[in-house]
Amino acid sequence: MTLADGIWHQIFSFDNYGELLTLVRNSLIAGAALGLVGGLAGVFVVMRDLPFAVHGISELSFAGASGALLLGTNIVAGSITGSLLAAGAIGVLGARARDRNSVIGIIMPFGLGLGVLFLALYKGRAANKFGLLTGQIVAVDTPQMTWLLGTSAVVLITLAVIWRPLTFASADPDVAEARGVPVRGLSIAFMLVLGLAIALSVQAVGALLVLSLVVTPAAAAARVTASPVLLPVLSALFAVVSIEGGILLALGSSIPISPYVTTVSFTLYVVCRLVGGNRARRWGARRSSSPQLAMS
Rank of each mutant, 00 (worst) to 15 (best):
L119N: 01
L119E: 02
L119V: 06
A120E: 14
L121A: 12
K123I: 04
G124I: 09
G124K: 03
R125W: 10
A126F: 07
A126N: 13
N128A: 13
N128G: 12
F130C: 01
L132H: 00
T134M: 13
V138Q: 14
V138Y: 05
V138E: 04
D141A: 10
P143E: 03
Q144E: 15
T146H: 13
T146I: 15
S152L: 09
A153I: 15
V155K: 03
V155T: 07
V155A: 02
A160W: 14
P165Q: 08
L166V: 11
L166G: 02
T167H: 06
F168V: 11
A169C: 06
D172N: 15
P173S: 11
D174Q: 14
D174E: 15
D174N: 11
A176R: 05
R179Q: 14
V181K: 08
V183W: 00
V183T: 04
R184H: 13
G185S: 12
S187F: 10
I188A: 00
I188G: 01
A189D: 10
M191G: 08
M191W: 11
L192E: 10
L192I: 13
V193S: 02
V193C: 12
L194E: 08
G195L: 07
L196I: 05
A197M: 10
L200K: 00
V202S: 02
V202G: 00
Q203G: 08
Q203P: 05
V205Y: 03
G206Q: 01
L208M: 15
L209N: 03
L209F: 14
L209M: 15
V210A: 07
L211H: 15
L211C: 09
L213F: 09
L213G: 02
V214Y: 01
V215I: 12
T216E: 09
P217G: 10
P217K: 12
A220K: 03
R223H: 13
P228V: 00
P228C: 02
P228L: 05
V229D: 02
V229N: 07
V229Y: 06
L230E: 12
